[in-house]
Design a protein around this nucleic acid. Structure first.
Lengths: 193, 193
DNA sequence: AAATAAAATTGATCTATATCAATTAGAATT
DNA sequence: AATTCTAATTGATATAGATCAATTTTATTT
């Protein structure tokens, strides 16, 4: 319980040693093998999880059985089916590990207790959610405003690091296009250079 | 400074009379006529605004001059270009009034001061942003997973009240389709009943 | 109430991207 | 190293929804 976790929190708020120790007690750690599920659609999402190491994806599956990537999370990111986690409703997302991963997880009950005991964690999550909101908003704008190629270029430019760790077909799904289309887009871009 | 505002906050957190009085001091109120701008693309978004009354929209404009609705906000909603507000970068969104409106507005400086003075407001905004995140996530799933008709039906079902106050062409833009397409979709749905 | 402007509808046509099918390249497993 | 499985590429074709243009309906302004 460690460097990655607290360095990410301390980047947004200050914590005393005492607070750190207290926070630790609310989390449990978990390792996931590649392809292992953290959550399956229809289950209740019991945890909000911080990625210490590795790479996960969350996605939903439509009536035709097609997967649609919702988000990826690598080191320093949080992942969950927020609606299920907060409301106790059934999860609409699946979450699994793209790479072998290590997580720190907290239940809703402990999350509530932790924020009440350490109010600065409300601030941390307020800032975290604020930033996520900006990111999601950008993606939504991109989704409505740009062509397939523009969306791909935008993603490449905003997130070059993570992209290299993720198979093309998942990236295609993330930007909402067919894998064949992404393949052709890449070819076009390459041929223009 | 009033019922709508505090009733929305008190639905999420508790406040003493003293805290309420303190909170009041951070906000200024403003009235907008129909079609009046609150924010124009390229300006810095100085305020986070709570809608006491009326209806506003936020939207971006692409290179072809087409508007793309980002969100609508009626009584009880907050509106801003969050990225610009928080970072001081130029706004990418325009915000204007669809109906004559009344707002309560706070600057970033006062927002920071308020949350430091009244930590429970961090909690309020943490919960608010958490919920917005769930909403945005749903919209993104819908945008990638569903057909134009499904997106329209979903919006109708999740938000029947607000839809009736908003012109069809803006709704089409919000779900990312051409106004002609929405018109045809409505016709189809009607003819099937 | 008349005049003007804006929004919605309808038809005809076009296009970006999806879908289907086959092939090749790369990973993972034995 | 050989085999099997999965992902990526490429070509041919189909389609949802966009675009363009004309018309009608509904708001707004004078």
């Amino acid at each position: 319980m460690d460097t990655v976790f607290f360095s990410h929190i301390l980047a947004k708020v200050s914590l005393s040693e005492e607070e750190k120790n207290s926070i630790k007690t609310f989390f449990v750690s978990k390792k996931l093998r590649k392809r292992q599920y953290l959550l399956q659609e229809g289950d209740i999402c019991k945890y909000l999880s911080f990625v210490e190491k590795g790479l996960l994806r969350s996605y939903n599956i439509d009536e035709k059985g097609e997967e649609h990537m919702n988000m990826f999370a690598c080191e320093g990111w949080w992942i969950s089916d927020m609606n299920s986690f907060l409301s106790g409703e059934k999860a609409v997302f699946n979450i699994d590990a793209i790479e072998e991963s290590e997580l720190l997880m907290i239940t809703l009950e402990d999350f509530e207790e932790m924020t009440l005991k350490i109010p600065v964690m409300d601030r941390y999550f307020r800032i975290l959610f604020q930033n996520s909101l900006v990111t999601k908003e950008r993606r939504l704008v991109s989704s409505n405003t740009h062509t397939a190629e523009e969306k791909y270029i935008e993603l490449m430019e905003s997130n070059p690091a993570i992209i290299q760790r993720i198979p093309q077909n998942l990236i295609a799904s993330y930007i909402g296009i067919a894998p064949e289309t992404l393949s052709r887009i890449k070819k076009n871009i390459a041929s223009r250079k």
